[in-house]
Structures are given as C-alpha cells and as structure tokens.
Design a binder for these strands. Structure first.
Length: 185
DNA sequence: GCGTCGATGGCA
DNA sequence: GCCATCGACGCG
C-alpha cells in the first residue's frame, strides 16, 4: 500500500495531536543513494512556552529559534555531550510546539532504534539537520500504511524538573511495539 | 534483573 | 550546574 508524504497541514496542528498521529507513520531518511525507513512507535509532545518541560519555556534563544517557526521543520538539538535529539516542529509560526521522536522500528534494514539517541545515530540525523523542511527530500514522513496502532499514553521521560507538567500524559506509544525506549508500566 | 554512575559538551 | 541519553558495571 502506497502512502502519501505528510504535508504542512498535518504538521500545523497542536503537538499532542501530531505526536499521537505520528505513531505508525514512516520516517524516511535519504542519505546518498540509500534510503533508510523506520516505523514510528514512540513520541512525546512539548506543547509550548507554558509547558515547563518544553525548551521554549525558557524563551526564544538561538537553540529554540526553529521551534518558533512554522510546523513541519526539524528541531535537532545536542544533549549530554553525545546525542542529537530529533523533533518535529508543530503548530503555526509563533507557537513553539514540537514532537520528540523517541523510538521506531527499522524497515528493511537492521538497527536498534529504541531510543531517541539511538534513532538519530542510526539514521544519521544530526544538528546539521536543524531547521530542515520535512516536506523536502532528505528527511520526511509517509502516512501510516498499515492498520491503526493501539495508542497508549504515558508520562514523558526525563522531565522530573518540570513541576506539575511532569505528570502530563504527553508520551504516546504503539502499545504493541517491542521497540519502545522504555516500557509504559 | 536491577540500580547507579560516568561520558562528554553546549547551553543559559 | 544542568541536561527530552546510553551503556557499562556491580551486585550476590
């Protein structure tokens, strides 16, 4: 079954909706003459400047600049001295929301994509991709070609500093996937 | 199987 | 000093 490339209308919605709807979609990464594909199984929504877990909560800075732009662009940042995190900017320009891509299943190649740092390393996504248009040819998503996944909501990982926002159920997983970064408990 | 900890560098 | 992580290590 052939699926359509996700477009700016899809990305222009709230991060929580986008995070949920990205589960089951296919991430395509073209590098040289190769094409790496992966089925998204885990995401997290960071819903704007009022969300204390969202990087944009600390204002507009050089790092968070792309989050304040229009949806459908990559926000890639470097953390812990060795990992790049891949996010999809969500919502309209001026509304700093994004979806962190946390885990996926490799399609047609062998890789462990069960974590945000593992996923970017294996798919060769780096800070060089910060700001790239996800409706372009190097990095994009295809709509879910299969059956509707069983979506499970949970608390986001690693945001205990975020006061009451740490309890928000903004992590979305495919409840039937064996490739999650962590169990949902 | 579990919890703890070090690596490693950009950021505010 | 902290961090939207990962993998190695020690346990018993």
């Amino acid at each position: 079954m052939r699926s359509k490339r996700l477009n700016s209308v899809f990305y222009g919605r709230d991060a929580a909706d986008l995070a949920r709807d990205l589960i089951g979609t296919i991430l395509v990464r073209r590098v040289g003459s190769k094409e790496l594909r992966a089925r998204i199984v885990e995401t997290e929504a960071y819903v704007g400047e009022h969300d204390l877990a969202c990087h944009a909560a600390r204002g507009r800075t050089a790092r968070t600049e792309v989050m304040f732009g229009p949806g459908g662009h990559a926000y890639v940042y470097f953390i812990y001295g060795m990992y790049d995190m891949f996010n999809v900017v969500s919502g309209p320009a001026g509304d700093a929301q994004a979806v962190l891509i946390r885990a996926a299943e490799a399609l047609g190649w062998n890789a462990d994509l069960s974590g945000p740092g593992k996923l970017t390393r294996a798919m060769r996504i780096t800070r060089a991709h910060n700001g790239v248009d996800l409706t372009g040819d190097k990095l994009f998503f295809l709509g879910n070609p299969g059956r509707r996944p069983r979506i499970v909501k949970a608390k986001r990982i690693g945001v205990d500093y975020a006061k009451h926002w740490k309890h928000a159920l903004l992590r979305f997983v495919d409840g039937d996937s064996p490739a999650l970064s962590r169990p949902v408990t």
